[in-house]
Nucleic acid binder design. Structure first.
Length: 925
RNA sequence: GCCUAGGUGGCGGAACUGGUAGACGCGCUGGAUUCAAAAUCCAGUUUCCUCGGAAGUGCGGGUUCGAUUCCCGCCCUAGGUACCA
């Protein structure tokens, strides 16, 4: 009887489902273990072979942990709000809900065919109103909170109001937008609206104006990478920088805590590093520069700069402001107005990304105005330049061309002076940005080192009220509004222009049905199309929706208690399951999802709703499986295609071609012509009668026609083979191109196991013959190695050690029941279907899922002797066996007499003999 | 530019804290079986040669009895980030 994987796999998938084998409940008698995959967006094209890589790893781990006696929580759900479904709705008019539902059904089917051990009773989707009710509820908590710097945590807004009533904001230390100081009396005298506006500056969810990439033609805001050279990537319509009122979450308040707690996480070094850079902490000082009064102006203007090198303050020779700095129009001298405003207009057209990425060209403009150096009182010119960004620091820098490369380039270009204030070893260089050396030309700082000078000058600045120490973060508050339909509506309505939050009993605020999914003619988001999108018939609801990461920033909590209608998660369940022990997903979410989830967790911790401070203890990043794309080359402005080897002779355009039309790089021309209408009449220039395609490795995607679907492989080889093949491809974290080259080998491995159990006629052949000591030794080694390797996520090596065992059993015709039982147990996390089947054939009627992982018999593994590699001058020549209790002197004696040793030494003198027990013998001559 | 990860046979990849380089699998070669093919099984497979060896883990140095592993300099690939003051 041969290995009929189709029958076996559907049999056990059905069994797991009807017996609810993977459903998990809180059980105090067992230790919990929470294994989570980053939940997918259910796209229209279904799963491709790259998706399951992480799911297979987490499934193996989950099944292994169950065998080790843990109570495993292993759920799956869908991040189902998002753009593709909305795009599809715009094109076809089909409601995104329907698209999403169909896609999810397909995903679920595909996931089940892989034999994953998900607890489907906990399945959730972010677009479900019973889920987004709680996303809205969490937003409400943000809205009703402020961040107290003194206690370093979020607190209820009610508390802030009490403080204002007592003492205004005179003593408050809080993360906020710019607010004027007011006293208790000021506060009491304010109107309701004025108060609300002030509170809005302190809330953790707040509204503010910001510049966005607005595309009038598309009626929508575009992300930075959707804009190319001032035009939209899709459609090529002009894009302008427009000020818009948007919701923000005050993640910047958490910068330091997000930074501090990274140390405790068991994440890869590179992901941690990415988050640290993203948060971007720098220590420095704020320094105030007075602007010199012009004859026609009487006002006192002060420019505040942020610097990380206050020690170089005597080297400042000019100031540079961002082109959108708010003082520019006020301070620019008359004769310079035209040039400056031209420059400002020019830079406004570019997106910030473009401004910063186009670094080759140094541009700038003099304002005609001078500032006064706060210490030397000398006059220094004020310039503007696009290399300064208004959203970082104060939007102004003090330029020290002698010790900063950017300032140096700028000064060179515009012939600005340079003052050297640090003497360095490389004294010849005009520019030195290092920190070694002594201060010169710096008055009271002379002869000090950089660090001392820094401390001293900050002291001086603070004493004289011209500056103060300051820690700056790069991390900016996160924009939380999207001008889209398919997302969570904000639980917000506006009363006289002031945002108000809905009461809990009004949640969820459901997404209304609309006719069309496009923005309105006036440029309002799609929700503006809904009639009666207002509260109590006269107060309009917020028309924006929340971004994709709103729902995904807390879903790991909901899985613990997915059906709860009273709370987003109950305290009991949270106490039991705690944080995610193992989180598996792609490293592309390093600074997005993973940072936002940490932020949400810390906030919910502050507000007392949860008792964990970090969401994901251990993070495993699976590498992407890349596709192999094929290309054809069309001669420009023609319908003729050139074979790959000849493309240098023509001017050609590269076009993706469906990989199903290509075999071994050779194009099937007939099928290609049928593929698309436009290619029907095409002609070909061939090589040796064949059309060769170009090949490149890139991300799998529908638009690249390089997607390989797992269904076909499961049909041909079965899910167990696919699971092992993907794991055997290499280390889980590595990026690798998809190939099926080795799949036969893996499939053979399973067939070999099947044959250990069955004879050619379908009879079972396991027996009770005592296995050899060698087999026992290898078996125990394998049990140990598989366990160690699963724990270190090195699945490829655990599989190869299983192969070694199976090869040995096959070659030595060992069919011992005791041995085979253990083999099936340790293999079952990898190939669960075949193992369930064999387990039942061994005579057990309980599922293998909750059996016990076999323990290692360490006695068997103990060695009495060791086969030493004997090397000469470090080069291994032959092997000799010695007992482990022979000492060095004894062994040396034997060696010196040995014929082979004499042969390699010949007549030379032995300098020494190195003997490392259980490792090596090295004879040096 | 900076940060991070990596570079080992024809290919995917092994090698624990410095100790037998190339486990395991693919592919390839030869053989068995077969009318034949598929499947299966057995043997071989880093390179070079004079069959005794010699070289060999991106390149060039160094430390060491011994380096894929540690140190210094460089090259290449992938990911991230970018006038961040």
């Amino acid at each position: 009887m041969s290995y009929n994987f189709k029958e076996i796999e559907s049999k056990w998938q059905h069994y797991w489902q009807i017996k609810n084998v993977f459903s998990s409940n809180e059980d105090d008698s067992k230790t919990k273990f929470y294994v989570l995959d980053m939940f997918p967006y259910p796209s229209g094209s279904g799963l491709h072979v790259g998706h399951p890589l992480g799911y297979i790893a987490s499934d193996i781990y989950s099944r292994f942990k169950r065998l080790k006696g843990y109570n495993v929580l292993h759920p799956m759900g869908y991040d189902s709000f998002g753009l593709p479904a909305e795009q599809y709705a715009i094109q076809t008019g089909q409601h995104p809900e329907i698209t999403t539902k169909n896609n999810i059904l397909r995903y679920r089917k595909q996931l089940n065919k892989m034999g994953f051990s998900f607890d489907w009773k906990r399945e959730l989707k972010t677009s479900d109103k019973n889920y987004y009710k709680w996303t809205q509820w969490i937003f409400k908590q943000f809205f009703n909170s402020w961040y107290c710097i003194k206690d370093n945590k979020a607190k209820p807004i009610k508390l802030l109001i009490q403080i204002f009533e007592k003492e205004g904001n005179l003593n408050i230390k809080a993360h906020s937008n710019k607010v004027l100081k007011f006293s208790k009396d000021n506060w009491v005298a304010m109107s309701k609206n004025e108060k609300e506006n002030i509170l809005l500056c302190y809330r953790l969810a707040y509204m503010d104006e910001t510049l966005v990439n607005w595309c009038p033609e598309l009626g929508t805001v575009l992300a930075n990478d959707e804009v190319k050279d001032g035009f939209s990537e899709r459609g090529g319509h002009p894009v302008i920088q427009k000020k818009m009122e948007q919701w923000f979450l005050r993640i910047s308040a958490y910068s330091q805590r997000l930074l501090d707690d990274i140390k405790e996480l068991d994440w890869t070094h590179s992901i941690k590093e990415q988050q640290i850079n993203w948060i971007g902490k720098s220590n420095g000082a704020l320094v105030k520069f007075k602007v010199r009064k012009e004859n026609d102006k009487n006002e006192n203007y002060i420019i505040e700069v942020f610097t990380t090198r206050p020690d170089t303050i005597f080297g400042v020779t000019y100031l540079t402001l961002a082109p959108d700095h708010k003082l520019i129009s006020k301070i620019t001298a008359k004769n310079y107005h035209e040039r400056v405003s031209n420059y400002v207009v020019k830079t406004n057209k570019k997106s910030e990304r473009e401004r910063l990425s186009d670094v080759k060209e140094v541009t700038g403009e003099f304002t005609g105005t001078y500032a006064i150096h706060p210490i030397t009182k000398k006059e220094i010119p004020i310039w503007i330049s696009e290399y300064v960004i208004s959203s970082y620091g104060t939007g102004a820098v003090m330029a020290v061309p002698a010790h900063d490369l950017r300032d140096f380039k700028f000064a060179k270009k515009f012939n600005l002076p340079l003052i050297k204030v640090i003497s360095s070893k490389d004294n010849d260089n005009e520019i030195y940005s290092g920190k070694e050396g002594k201060l010169i030309n710096s008055d009271f700082l002379n002869n000090l080192g950089v660090t001392e000078a820094n401390n001293k000058v900050i002291n001086f600045l603070e004493k004289n009220n011209i500056g103060l120490m300051k820690i700056q973060y790069r991390l900016r508050d996160a924009i939380f509004s999207r001008q889209r339909y398919w997302g969570e509506p904000f639980p917000i309505y506006f009363k006289l222009g002031i945002p108000k939050i809905l009461d809990d009993d009004k949640l969820p605020l459901e997404l209304p049905s609309i006719e069309k999914y496009l923005p309105t003619k006036e440029g309002d988001p799609p929700l503006a199309r809904s009639k009666n999108w207002e509260y109590k018939n006269n107060m309009p609801f917020e028309k924006n929706t929340m971004p994709g990461w709103a729902g995904s920033s807390w879903y790991f909590l909901r899985f613990m208690d997915p059906k709860n209608s009273k709370e987003f998660v109950s305290k009991d369940k949270l106490n039991y399951w705690g944080n995610v022990d193992l989180y598996v997903g792609g490293s592309e979410h390093a600074t997005g999802h993973l940072l936002y989830s940490r932020f949400f967790t810390k906030f919910l911790f502050d507000t007392g709703h949860i008792n964990i401070n970090e969401p994901f203890k251990k993070l495993l990043n699976q590498g992407m499986i890349l596709g192999k794309s094929n290309f054809v080359y069309r001669i420009k402005d023609s319908n003729t295609f050139v074979s790959y080897g000849l493309i240098n002779k023509y001017e050609v355009i590269r076009i993706h071609v469906d990989i199903n039309l290509v075999k071994n790089s050779v194009l099937n021309i007939k099928r290609f012509k049928e593929w698309r209408q436009e290619f029907k009449e095409s002609e070909f220039i061939l090589e040796n009668g064949k059309y060769f395609c170009g090949v490149e490795t890139e991300k799998m995607s529908k638009s690249k026609y390089n997607v390989v679907n797992p269904d076909e492989i499961i049909d041909n080889y079965g899910a167990d083979t696919l699971r092992i093949h993907e794991m055997f491809l290499g280390p889980i974290e590595q990026y690798k191109p998809w190939n099926t080259n080795g799949i036969n080998g893996v499939h053979n491995f399973l067939k070999k196991i099947w044959k250990l159990f069955h004879d050619d006629y379908g009879g079972l052949k396991f027996n009770s013959i005592k296995p050899s000591s060698e087999i026992l030794k290898v078996l125990n080694k394998t049990i140990q190695k598989v366990e160690e390797d699963i724990e270190s996520f090195s699945f490829n090596t655990s599989i190869s050690s299983l192969m070694v065992l199976v090869n040995l059993l096959t070659n030595s015709k060992c069919y011992s029941k005791k041995i085979l039982e253990k083999l099936v147990l340790i293999l079952s996390p990898f190939a669960p279907h075949i193992c369930e089947e064999l387990w039942s054939k061994l005579g057990y009627n309980q599922s293998i899922v909750y059996q016990k992982y076999p323990s290692v018999n360490t006695k068997i593994l103990e060695e009495k002797s060791y086969l030493y590699p004997v090397s000469f001058n470090g080069k291994m020549r032959f092997k000799l066996e010695f007992s482990l209790d022979q000492d060095k002197i004894e062994i040396e004696k034997i060696l010196l007499k040995h014929d082979k040793v004499k042969h390699y030494i010949q007549n030379k003198k032995i300098m020494k003999i190195i003997f490392v027990p259980k490792k090596i013998i090295n004879i040096v001559f």
